[in-house]
């Protein structure tokens, strides 16, 4: 950073940076993406608040105990946790520029993500089949909104993952692809953090009611 000294008259204060310094491409992406994640966190906080308020209003309909299968939720949680681990391994492989290993771990991550979505969707289908639709009670409306929003995030994460796998295949592990993969890793780990809240507040606390 250079503050113009020569060009200024003596005694005149300088209030600004005269020469614009270099900004590397994508230098602010990480902070920007982190702030996006924080705003996403606010969305989920509001949905949790809604669930906290409405979660006990069954309208004489089914309660969590009648609907949830904890062992299925445990499997789902395991899938998401394992996918976080495999994404972490992919990022380590990326750090060593081992493209093959990285791609393999990304594919495994995607499969765990698909497994998670599959179980969640079959759970939803089962509930709706039993008449526990979002219209049934305030509890079910807030349940489907909260868990569904998380599921949508995972869906878009998967689309993003496939896109990046194709990108790396086409262009290799170039700097911008590394940056994108790093953003997705933050997104993916963030979804796992949100899921901790979901399985604790919705499923486990629901079974205690």
């Amino acid at each position: 950073m250079t503050i113009a000294m020569g060009s200024m008259k003596a005694g005149e204060p300088v209030f600004y940076v005269v020469d614009e310094h270099e900004h590397a491409e994508g230098h602010s992406t990480m902070l920007g993406f982190w702030i996006y994640l924080m705003s996403d966190c606010l969305i989920f906080a509001m949905l949790f608040a809604v669930y906290g308020v409405l979660g006990g209003k069954y309208a004489a309909g089914p309660a969590p105990k009648d609907l949830f299968d904890l062992s299925l939720v445990a499997v789902n949680t395991t899938f998401l946790l394992l996918s976080s681990l495999t994404y972490g391994l992919a990022m380590l492989a990326m750090g060593q520029s081992r493209v093959g290993a990285m791609m393999a771990w990304l594919v495994v991550t995607g499969l765990f993500g698909l497994g998670f979505l599959g179980i969640e969707l079959s759970e939803f289908a089962h509930m709706i089949h039993e008449g526990a639709t979002p219209q049934r009670s305030a509890f079910l409306s807030s349940f489907f909104t909260l868990v569904g929003t998380h599921g949508l995030h995972v869906t878009f994460g998967l689309i993003w993952l496939v896109t990046l796998i194709v990108q790396v295949r086409l262009h290799g592990l170039i700097e911008s692809n590394r940056r994108r993969l790093f953003c997705l890793s933050m997104f993916w780990h963030f979804l796992d953090v949100i899921w901790i809240g979901v399985f604790t507040v919705v499923y486990l606390m629901g079974m205690l009611r």
């Binding site: 310094h21 491409e25 994508g26 230098h27 380590l92 700097e175 590394r178 940056r179």
Partner: peptide, 9 residues
């Protein structure tokens, strides 16, 4: 103002 590459993985 580092580049994106210097992030801790």
């Amino acid at each position: 103002h580092g580049t994106a590459g210097d992030h801790s993985h």
